[in-house]
Simulated assay, not measured.
Amino acid sequence: MISLFLDFDGTINDSSLRAYESYSMATKRLGGIPIDYQGFLLNKRNGIEKSALLFRSGIEVSAVDMFDNYVLSFIEMESCLLLDRLYGWSLELLSAFSELELKLFLLTSRRRSDLLQRQIDNYFIREYFSEIFVESDKAAFLNSQDLESTCIIVGDTEAEIVAARRARISCVSVSWGMRSRSFLSALNPEYLVDDFKDLLEIIGKKAIRKEQ
Score class of each variant (00 low, 15 high):
residue 1 M to R: 00
residue 8 F to N: 12
residue 12 I to D: 00
residue 13 N to D: 11
residue 16 S to V: 10
residue 21 E to P: 07
residue 22 S to M: 14
residue 23 Y to L: 09
residue 25 M to K: 15
residue 31 G to H: 03
residue 32 G to A: 03
residue 37 Y to I: 04
residue 42 L to N: 14
residue 43 N to S: 07
residue 44 K to D: 06
residue 45 R to L: 01
residue 50 K to D: 10
residue 54 L to F: 05
residue 56 R to M: 14
residue 61 V to N: 06
residue 64 V to H: 12
residue 67 F to V: 04
residue 69 N to S: 11
residue 73 S to N: 08
residue 79 S to L: 08
residue 82 L to I: 12
residue 84 D to S: 11
residue 84 D to N: 15
residue 91 L to N: 00
residue 91 L to E: 07
residue 91 L to P: 05
residue 92 E to Y: 08
residue 109 S to Y: 13
residue 111 R to G: 08
residue 117 Q to G: 04
residue 123 Y to F: 15
residue 126 R to G: 08
residue 126 R to A: 04
residue 126 R to S: 09
residue 134 V to K: 07
residue 134 V to S: 05
residue 136 S to N: 12
residue 138 K to L: 07
residue 145 Q to S: 06
residue 147 L to Y: 09
residue 154 V to Q: 03
residue 161 I to P: 02
residue 162 V to I: 14
residue 162 V to Q: 15
residue 170 S to G: 07
residue 172 V to M: 05
residue 174 V to T: 06
residue 181 R to S: 12
residue 181 R to F: 12
residue 189 P to R: 10
residue 192 L to R: 02
residue 192 L to D: 04
residue 193 V to Y: 02
residue 199 L to F: 04
residue 200 L to Y: 15
residue 200 L to C: 09
residue 201 E to D: 15
residue 204 G to C: 05
residue 206 K to Q: 07
residue 206 K to A: 10
residue 209 R to F: 09
residue 211 E to T: 05
